[in-house]
Computed example of a mutant assay.
Amino acid sequence: MYQGNNPTALQSQRWIAESLIALMQEKPYSQITIQNICKRADLSRQTFYNTFSSREEVLRFCLREQYMQQFQRFDTKPMISLRETVEAFTSVLDGNRVLLQSMLDNHLESIITDEIAKCVSLFANRFVSHRDDSLPYSEALLSGALAHLLLCWFQQPQPISIQALTELLSAFLSGQLYIFEPDQDDPVPPGSSPQR
């Protein structure tokens, strides 16, 4: 995938991405060829291969562009809140409903899951203050949860609003969604006193 700053190449990437998204509204992804994309974008195959290596890479570009915009928005901040992070994620979902639905309709969940994992890793590398051997597990847990949340949201006949989704995700990540009462037989955590 082209990652330079040549304005012509960047514009070509956007045209190719827009063409693929438009074509996915008309026919199944499996029936879309590079030639179809190039014709729709009014670009040559050579231009396509100068900027992307495959159709899948175009889809990854579409998703990555959105979360990179969110990341750049936070880049000047030394810290970001949980709420800001959740709003960034749900904003990407809301802004890409057509693309995400088309990808799900074409059974391309693995691309979405991979890109969510990359996004979580990017945010963790920039904003997580405590790094240890458990960080990859935390990233895996969070990216898996976010991917399945997205799938669940799109599969509902009447999904909750983006605002309600933001609230739900914020409550879950802050530990306020589920409240567990300790059993009498549970061991007392070190450093705490037993409840009476």
Rank of each mutant, 00 (worst) to 15 (best):
Q70L: 03
D42E: 15
F74H: 05
L149M: 11
S81P: 08
L169C: 08
A147N: 07
T33G: 05
L10G: 03
F74P: 01
S174D: 14
L142K: 04
I111T: 07
F127R: 08
V86Y: 03
P7G: 10
V92F: 04
A164S: 14
L165N: 05
F172Q: 12
P157D: 09
K118T: 03
V58W: 00
A88S: 09
S12K: 00
E56M: 04
Q46I: 11
S192R: 08
V92S: 00
R55Y: 00
Q72V: 01
I179S: 14
G95F: 01
T8K: 13
M1P: 08
T85P: 00
S110I: 02
C152A: 13
H148W: 10
K27C: 00
S53E: 12
D42Q: 15
L169G: 01
L122W: 04
C119L: 11
Q176F: 06
W15G: 02
P190I: 06
F123C: 00
L100S: 01
S174I: 07
R97K: 14
K27I: 02
F71D: 02
S193Y: 09
I32H: 00
S30F: 01
H130Y: 12
T8S: 10
W15S: 11
L135S: 09
F172D: 06
I162Q: 09
E139M: 10
R14W: 06
E57G: 07
N125L: 04
T8N: 07
I160A: 14
I112M: 05
I116V: 13
Y67R: 01
S192T: 15
D105I: 02
K77H: 03
G4I: 11
N125G: 07
E109A: 08
I111Q: 02
W153M: 05
D75C: 02
Q163G: 08
M79W: 10
I162D: 04
D186W: 14
P189R: 10
C119A: 12
D114G: 11
V188M: 10
R45C: 02
E56A: 08
L141Y: 11
S121L: 03
Y2Q: 05
S102L: 11
L122Q: 06
G175Q: 04
D183Y: 15
F52R: 09
F180Y: 15
Q70N: 07
S91F: 03
N5W: 08
L122D: 01
R45K: 15
N106A: 07
P7K: 13
S54Q: 09
L168M: 14
I112D: 04
D133K: 13
G175I: 03
R64E: 08
V120L: 08
K77N: 08
M68Q: 09
S174A: 12
E181I: 11
R64G: 03
D183S: 14
D94M: 12
Q72G: 06
I179M: 15
S53C: 10
M24T: 00
L43H: 09
N36F: 05
A140Q: 12
T47W: 06
Q72T: 07
I32L: 06
R73W: 10
A145I: 03
L151S: 08
L108E: 03
S30R: 09
E57K: 14
Y137A: 11
T51C: 15
Q163C: 07
C62S: 14
I160Q: 12
P159F: 01
V86M: 05
F180S: 15
P157E: 11
A171E: 14
